[in-house]
Design a protein around this nucleic acid. Sequence first.
RNA 1: GGAAGAAUGGCUGAGCGGUCGAAAGCGGCGGUCUUGAAAACCGUUGAUGUGAGAGCAUCCUGGGGUUCGAAUCCCUAUUCUUCCGCCA
Length: 428
Amino acid sequence: MLDINLIRQNPDYVAKSLAKKGYEVDFADFLTKEAKKREIMGEVEKLKATRNANSALVPQYKKEGKDVAELIAATKAIGEEIAAKDKAIAELDKELTDFMLSLPNMPDDDLLPGEKENNKVIRTFGEKPKFDFKPKSHIELCEELGLIDYERGAKLAGNGSWIYRGMGARLEWALINYFIDEHLADGYEFVLLPHMLNYECGLGAGQFPKFSDDVYWIDNKSETSKFLLPTAETALVNMYRGEVLKESDLPKKFAGYTPCYRREAGSYRSEERGMIRGHQFNKVEMVQYTKPADSDKAFEELVGKAERLVQKLGLHYQVSKLAAGDCSASMCRTYDIEIWIPSMGIYKEVSSASNARDYQARRNNTRYRNEETKKLEYVHTLNASGLATSRLFPALLEQCQNADGSITIPEALRKYMGGIERIEKPTK
RNA sequence: GGAAGAAUGGCUGAGCGGUCGAAAGCGGCGGUCUUGAAAACCGUUGAUGUGAGAGCAUCCUGGGGUUCGAAUCCCUAUUCUUCCGCCA
């Protein structure tokens, strides 16, 4: 949620900023209604003051033996007027709140406007591997090495679902363990979260109401039903919803592992065979709560951490600074870490690091007490994948494949795989 | 799944229709004392909106209702506790 006072004070600035995300908005109607609401509130407060005063007179009159019937009748009339105005306020307020909730976050000033085409690669690590043989795609490798069972996965759960088998399951699990150990070493608290969340989580993270059809609902969608989380971020940024944190508790740093469940309806499935885009994938997610002044530093830390995870595996990737329109609705800035997938000839996102600043904290009311000013302030929330396996896994297979069809396991992963150095074709 | 009880400020906890934004204690902050600290004692200590300010309004889990007036009564949702049942 944006700061309503900023909209009141400088609607043009906000509109211009949102336009960089391709979001056209006119605040005129909103501001009129907002002013109207204030006006009615002023009236109603005066009426309430009168009612309160009258009500206080009732016991006094009774003590003095005066008749209170007239006073009560008059006050009742005021009460009816209050009720009518309160109703008008509630209606306006609902409208205003819905509007506020629908607004995306403002992109940072240094971002380019527009969509993907304006993303900028800001650095790369490693080089595209050169093969002196015809490299295979991860789909071929997975099938030949028996790592992923696409057919039976589809049999169990339909298109976009697969089964990790044997060494494939071990490699997947090794990646997750590797990520978690790295985060623990950096002082992040490891958390395992519920996968079924209530509506408020989606609202607080900024995914709802707009993207409520992108998730799986356990029962029919409603505000009392639960949905399967599309990313651990949805849970992590809601942990302190409605709470006031101590300044000394900040920053809070979390690493949570969950599968991520996404409908991916109308997606690029046909172009993205294999495990590039599925309805369920594993991800370790990092989230930080910081003081506003510290969030830029935290952002760099998160990007650096995600990069290091890929670097230690020795895989080639690039970092893109996203244009305003490619940042998700809740975010002020996002850097993507994109890994090279040889068979596709493109880079695919394995991590998305974002700074939401106070947008999510305003939505879910997460604040801290500023020790200096003694005032309550909104925290900043940031998140970064660390990492998603479903893109990393195929990239690893393809980048680390050998002429004989085997895969060399990166050094950093071996201790999580019982020391295995290579995945070979099964003999049987 | 059934039954009963509970939810109050940073925390513990009193209040059960009018002077209650809410006793008391703890904690926090300021002070006295002390070389310093502790203890003791004194004072102070919620948030939001609005207003230049005095003030006014709102907030006792969320929502709705009764009433001139609700922390207090009623309905409802959520959560917690206890008991019973079922079960990995």
